[in-house]
Simulated assay, not measured.
Amino acid sequence: MKRALFFVLLYSVWFVLPAQAQKFGYIDSEYILSKMPEYQKALTEIDKFADKWSKDIQDKYVEIEKLQKAYQAEEILLTEDMKRERQRIISDREREARDYNNKVFGYQGLLFDKKKELMKTPLDLINKSLEKICAQRKLDFIFDKASDFVMLYTNPRHDYSDYVMEDLGLDTKPTATNSNPTNKTTTKPK
């Protein structure tokens, strides 16, 4: 009896509540970002910082190498206390270089923070455009084809990348150097 009552309630809810289809779409953020001058500028800035920090670390290791060669050349002339002091200095410099390397390139280091800071502008532009496109097209869900979320099949009909690019004022035509595997068609989702 309880089972029958459950099914009656289930069917009544099913028919009383109107079925509402949810609209969804997807974008390819890598494709969009590759066309954005703000993104290219951010990448250039990130490379500059990474190169500068790499050079700083390399300079520290060159200095350590000089200290080691000087120690090896003078080792036979040094007293035991002087040897220990030189070895301590070399060891301290090696530790400082390792610590600096971890501080810059380690997990959530300076490079990570700089990337986050410089990528904020292009990502904010895409998000604002997405909000606008979703409101205009009455979309309930937007997925990112470039994310870790696996999309085994995508119908180009649901690709809203071109709308976002148009909103951002970017060229939607594929370039000869674009190796984007997605099938960009001229028909847009409805």
Rank of each mutant, 00 (worst) to 15 (best):
M36I: 07
K23D: 11
S129Q: 03
P37T: 01
A19R: 13
A19T: 15
D51S: 02
D162A: 13
Q40T: 11
D51W: 01
K41N: 05
S161A: 12
A97N: 07
D171K: 12
D81F: 05
V8I: 15
T121H: 05
Q20D: 04
E65S: 09
T182N: 08
N155W: 03
A70E: 15
M119N: 12
R93S: 08
I142D: 00
W53I: 03
T79Y: 06
S12H: 03
S54I: 00
I27V: 14
N183I: 12
Q22T: 02
S54W: 05
I89V: 11
V164I: 14
K184Q: 00
D99P: 00
L123D: 08
I90L: 10
V62L: 15
E117R: 11
G169V: 00
A42M: 12
P37V: 03
L139M: 01
N178K: 00
K69Y: 07
D124W: 02
D159R: 03
C134K: 06
V150H: 04
L67N: 02
Y100V: 04
Y61K: 14
D59M: 12
E117S: 15
E85L: 12
S129P: 08
D113H: 12
K184C: 02
K83V: 06
Q136L: 13
L78Y: 11
E131V: 11
V16L: 15
A176Q: 12
P37F: 05
Y153P: 03
K128D: 07
E38A: 13
S91K: 14
M165E: 03
Q68R: 09
N183F: 11
M119V: 09
A4I: 14
D167G: 13
Y153V: 04
N127I: 08
L152P: 00
A42D: 06
D144W: 03
T121E: 11
D99H: 06
Q22P: 01
L139A: 05
E30N: 13
L5N: 04
L110F: 01
R86M: 11
D56A: 08
S161P: 13
V16N: 06
I32V: 15
N127K: 15
Q68L: 06
A176H: 10
N102T: 00
T175R: 10
V13S: 06
T172D: 10
G106M: 01
R93E: 12
A21F: 02
A97E: 09
V150M: 03
F24Y: 13
Y153E: 05
